[in-house]
Computed example of a mutant assay.
Amino acid sequence: MSWTTRRAEPRSDTAAQPAPTTPAIAHGAAVASFLAGLWLVMAPFALRYQSAEDGFDRHWTSVLAGSVVLVCSLVHAMAPRETPWLLPVLFAVGAWLVVAPLVTRYPVAGHAAANDSVTGAVVVLATLSSAAAALRRGPRLRLRDRP
């Protein structure tokens, strides 16, 4: 009795189909948002945000917004076509970070206002570029359209 292994022949129906790709801009925007979220979580501790006299700790704005940006950008990077609803969430969080220093009256002497505004602008720009890339890609696939 002879034991031989037989090589599996590649199936012609799967070999002809290219793997779905996502434009590099969308991946770059997701990475930028993820890094911005990571920085927002770490910034209050790295820059030693000042506590406010009015009892509102500004570092929680950065930590909470950064956590939302981290999770949303990671999920959107993994499945951009299935999670287009995360782009408005990321945009809203980024816009909040831009205006939060004005609304909550951050201390002028601290780094928190500039850091949150600049990082929020990065999140907004990354979200807009990701949305533009999604519009160029065309309509997203529905579950029933998948092979």
Rank of each mutant, 00 (worst) to 15 (best):
residue 99 V to F: 13
residue 80 P to E: 01
residue 82 E to M: 13
residue 107 P to V: 13
residue 93 V to L: 01
residue 93 V to T: 07
residue 92 A to Q: 04
residue 96 W to R: 07
residue 104 T to M: 12
residue 91 F to W: 08
residue 95 A to P: 08
residue 91 F to I: 11
residue 94 G to I: 07
residue 85 W to E: 10
residue 84 P to C: 08
residue 95 A to L: 11
residue 91 F to G: 13
residue 104 T to S: 09
residue 86 L to V: 06
residue 101 P to T: 14
residue 81 R to T: 15
residue 99 V to I: 15
residue 107 P to E: 07
residue 105 R to A: 11
residue 83 T to G: 02
residue 97 L to E: 13
residue 90 L to T: 06
residue 104 T to C: 07
residue 103 V to L: 09
residue 102 L to I: 15
residue 99 V to G: 13
residue 94 G to L: 00
residue 94 G to R: 05
residue 88 P to T: 03
residue 92 A to G: 13
residue 108 V to D: 09
residue 91 F to C: 10
residue 90 L to S: 01
residue 104 T to V: 12
residue 88 P to Y: 01
residue 83 T to N: 04
residue 97 L to W: 01
residue 106 Y to E: 11
residue 106 Y to I: 12
residue 87 L to K: 03
residue 104 T to A: 13
residue 95 A to E: 10
residue 78 M to Y: 09
residue 90 L to H: 04
residue 95 A to M: 12
residue 95 A to N: 11
residue 82 E to L: 07
residue 98 V to A: 06
residue 96 W to G: 14
residue 93 V to A: 03
residue 80 P to F: 00
residue 87 L to Q: 04
residue 93 V to P: 02
residue 95 A to R: 03
residue 80 P to R: 01
residue 103 V to M: 02
residue 107 P to K: 03
residue 99 V to K: 07
residue 85 W to N: 09
residue 104 T to W: 08
residue 99 V to M: 15
residue 83 T to M: 06
residue 107 P to T: 12
residue 107 P to I: 12
residue 97 L to G: 05
residue 78 M to V: 09
residue 105 R to P: 03
residue 86 L to E: 07
residue 82 E to I: 11
residue 108 V to C: 05
residue 104 T to P: 00
residue 97 L to R: 03
residue 83 T to R: 09
residue 87 L to R: 00
residue 90 L to N: 02
residue 79 A to Q: 07
residue 95 A to C: 12
residue 84 P to H: 10
residue 95 A to W: 07
residue 82 E to V: 14
residue 81 R to N: 08
residue 93 V to M: 01
residue 106 Y to M: 05
residue 86 L to Q: 01
residue 85 W to R: 01
residue 79 A to Y: 02
residue 89 V to T: 15
residue 103 V to R: 04
